[in-house]
Design a protein around this nucleic acid. Structure first.
Ligand code: FES
Ligand code: FES
Lengths: 154, 154
DNA sequence: CTTTTCGTAACTTATCAAGTTTCAAATTCT
DNA sequence: AGAATTTGAAACTTGATAAGTTACGAAAAG
C-alpha cells in the first residue's frame, strides 16, 4: 500500500523553516524534499489555513513560520495536511446486511479506533520544538557546530 | 489512500466457514465476497500455510477450517494474510542524511510503533470464537433462528 | 513593466491491492 | 479410461489516489 508522506514531509519543512531567518520559496523547499514547487504549495496551503505558516507573494516572498514551534503539535500538522486516513487496513463493505460482516467490522473498528486515539493523543503531546531539540541533540552528538542544511539546497 | 481489506474479508470467510458442515468452494466464497475465485485462492493460500484452513481438490473439494475458531486469533489471520502494513501514514526518506528528517522520523516511528504494538496486542487477544459469539448475539437480538447466509450465495 | 513568487486548476505518473484470464494438476464420479 | 469438478499458480489488467507535472493568472517588489 502506498504511503501518505505529507505529515512527515511537512514536519521536516517546518523545522528547517525555523532555522532560516528569511522566507523560503516553494522552489527551495521542493529541492529539499526532492519534489516540485506546485506540490509544496498545495500541501503548505493547509498549514497556512491553520496559521502555522504564512506566505508572501512576489520578489522576496516565500514561506515563514506563523507561530513558534513550541505552539505547534504533531496533531496540529496532521490535521492541517487534511487528517489523512491513519490506517492501511480497511473494513470490507461488500455485504452490509450480513451479521457476520457486521460483527467482524465492529471488532476491527473498535480496535482500530483505540489505536487511532492513542496515536493522535501522542501526536497532540509532541510539540515541534521537541523535535527541534532532538535534532539539536543529534547535531551536538555529531559535533556539528552550525547544523545547516545537509542536502543540495542552496 | 486505498485500503487493504484482506484481514476483514478473511475473517468474514472463516466465520462463515464454520457454519457450513461441508467444504466451501472458492466460487461460493467469491460470491459471498463479491469477488472472484482466483483472488479467494490467492488469499486463502496464506491461511492454508498457517494451518487455519485446509483445501481439497477435485469433486466435492473446497475449503474447510483447519482448527477451531477458539484457536485462531485476529493476529494469526493478520499474519497469515501477509502481515500487511498497518499504517497509511509513512515516513519520508528523501534526505536520509538530514538530521532534521532523522529527528522527525524517529519521533514518528516511535509513535507509530507504539500504536502498532497496541493494535497487534489487541488482535492477539481476540479469538475468532469471540467474533462468532458476537455474531450469534446480534442474530438473537434480531430474533433470527437460523442465522444462515443473508447474501445471494447458494 | 519586468521579475519573482504564490495560487490554483488540470493533467499525468507510480504503486499495489484487487480483479481477471488461463491452463495445469489433482481428485471424484460414471 | 474419460469426463467433470476444483484447487494451484502464473501472467496480466484495472482502479484508486498520493505524488508529480504543466501551465497560467494574480500579487508584490524592484
Ligand atoms: S533536507 Fe534537511 S538538510 Fe536539506
Ligand atoms: S456474506 Fe455473510 S451472509 Fe452471505
Amino acid at each position: 500500500m502506498r504511503h501518505d508522506g505529507r505529515l512527515s514531509r511537512m514536519l521536516h519543512v517546518l523545522l528547517h523553516m525555523e532555522e532560516q531567518q528569511r522566507p523560503m520559496t516553494s522552489e527551495e523547499i521542493a529541492g529539499m524534499l526532492g519534489t516540485n514547487p506546485a506540490l509544496v504549495r498545495r500541501t503548505l496551503a493547509g498549514l497556512r489555513e491553520g496559521g502555522y505558516v504564512v506566505s508572501e507573494r512576489g520578489h522576496g516572498g516565500g514561506w515563514m513560520l506563523g507561530r513558534p514551534l513550541s505552539e505547534i503539535t504533531l496533531r496540529d500538522v496532521y490535521d492541517a495536511v487534511g487528517a489523512p486516513e491513519v490506517f492501511a487496513l480497511g473494513l470490507a463493505d461488500d455485504q452490509p446486511q450480513c451479521l457476520v460482516e457486521q460483527a467482524v467490522n465492529h471488532a476491527l473498528r473498535r480496535t482500530l479506533d483505540e489505536a487511532r486515539r492513542l496515536l493522535l493523543q501522542r501526536f497532540a503531546d509532541i510539540r515541534l520544538s521537541d523535535l527541534r531539540d532532538d535534532f539539536a541533540a543529534r547535531a551536538a552528538a555529531l559535533g556539528v557546530r552550525q547544523p545547516g542544511p545537509t542536502c543540495a539546497d542552496d
